[in-house]
Nucleic acid binder design. Sequence first.
RNA 1: CGGGGCGUAGCGCAGCCCGGUUAGCGCACCUGGUUUGGGACCAGGGGGUCGCAGGUUCGAAUCCUGCCGCCCCGACCA
Length: 491
Amino acid sequence: MAKALPSRKENYSLWYNELVKKADLAENSDVRGCMVIKPYGYSIWEKMQRGLDDMFKATGHVNAYFPLFIPKSYMSREADHVEGFAKECAIVTHYRLKTSEDGKGVIPDPEAKLEEELIVRPTSETVIWSTYRKWIQSYRDLPLLINQWANVVRWEMRTRLFLRTTEFLWQEGHTAHATSKEAVEEAERMLNVYTQFAEQTMALPVIQGIKSESEKFAGAIDTYCIEALMQDGKALQAGTSHYLGQNFAKAFDVKFANKEGKEELVWGTSWGVTTRLIGALIMAHSDDDGLVLPPKLAPIQVVCVPIYRSEEDLAKIKEVVSKLEKEFLTKGISFKFDDRDTERPGWKFAEYELKGVPLRIALGPRDLEKNQAEVARRDTKEKMFISLDRLSDDVVKLLEEIQNNIYNRALDFRKQNTHDVETYDELKEVLNTKGGFVLAHWDGTAETEDKIKNDTKASLRCIPLDSNGKEGKCVVTGKTSKQKVIFAKAY
RNA sequence: CGGGGCGUAGCGCAGCCCGGUUAGCGCACCUGGUUUGGGACCAGGGGGUCGCAGGUUCGAAUCCUGCCGCCCCGACCA
């Protein structure tokens, strides 16, 4: 059989790129650094959106929408925030074009220069807090729990499909609270929501942690994150939740009257996940034959490929399929019957493997004689024959099994690729040869973090929340360390 | 912005060093037929400003000059 993809082991980046394109998820657009998400890829995003949105609603949040443009002056209100994002902003300077002198094209009309330039949002804290100022007067207006689904633009130097594009889709939650305690609880709650979504829906095991000073969000007091391990041993930040303290309330003068009638600054959080999650999904589960999708996110959960010579064969198969289709429908399974006569069965098999469809049913005359179907699992490549009488029941079980199996497989992989080290030599050795997550004691200083980054190209991914609290000595300086932290090369 | 590489059919490439038939190959596409239990085969066919502009030459995809665009590596990063 012709291999559709390059080998994962030989060239991971090439494999990834080819897979994204061949599985019909996305492609590079003609616009610098931007991505076209194709219908198949977008339907995975839609499933993610639905799953996450339900969880946001269940935790009391509502959706709203704020402007794409941010007046330049807003950006500079919060000092850390502007410093963090200034280098990657797209700026709107004019509102009209005119034909150029040589008549060959158009130029921004110098007469239509904006008095104040607009920034295309890299994130919405500033516009949203400038609005919250108007919305919040009393403790009765709090907590304010709002989420928005939007696109943002960050002018990154180098881009990669799904993992880092100039424009990307995400959700950003922005909440306001009366007390610090409530805001911290909210940030932690949403981190748990992300964790649950990653593990239960995406079958992606993650580690919860806190970012170091140098890695945290520009404008936050604390950044919580979930970190996942990809199959090439690199870490991927899969979601973040920030405790903002009163930073944005101060910058935008957002105050409320408490029960005693005293004015106080509001406490805030923000949290987000992006289309990068699709990249995580791909890199955590897929293989050299293509995508492996967790059943809970697969746009098509079960595909049926008929095998036939004559029209009579096909008619008989269709009869069986229409019964199956009804059973699947009542059981909430998304099903596709591919009876195109323009492609041959072998071609279809390969195509659905490439697209990560969890279960494939092949039905031919031989099967009908025996009242059975051939069922193939995408995750294990296992093939089995199942009686048509209990096919839909077994499919439900199999889908659950696949969901669990790919989670456990990813979890095993992470365990195999998480290494405890005690010395700096060991840390460097592991990072250079094996990769993966490396647990090591760290003295808490940015200097040590920088040194490790320079020596190994690995960054401090997070200080795990689940620390087991064992004290020790920093692998670089020998100073005391409260707990081990995670270092890894990252995307 | 620094260091490498590339631009030839929708996609992937060969040809260029050493100028000379009608610019070629694989995939894809179209037509007809045979096929269909793991990416079918045969026959025929369509499709090109050789990135752009200038120069050298009897003659340029090929040599020279300038420009444009893209990709990879680094700085940046969800």
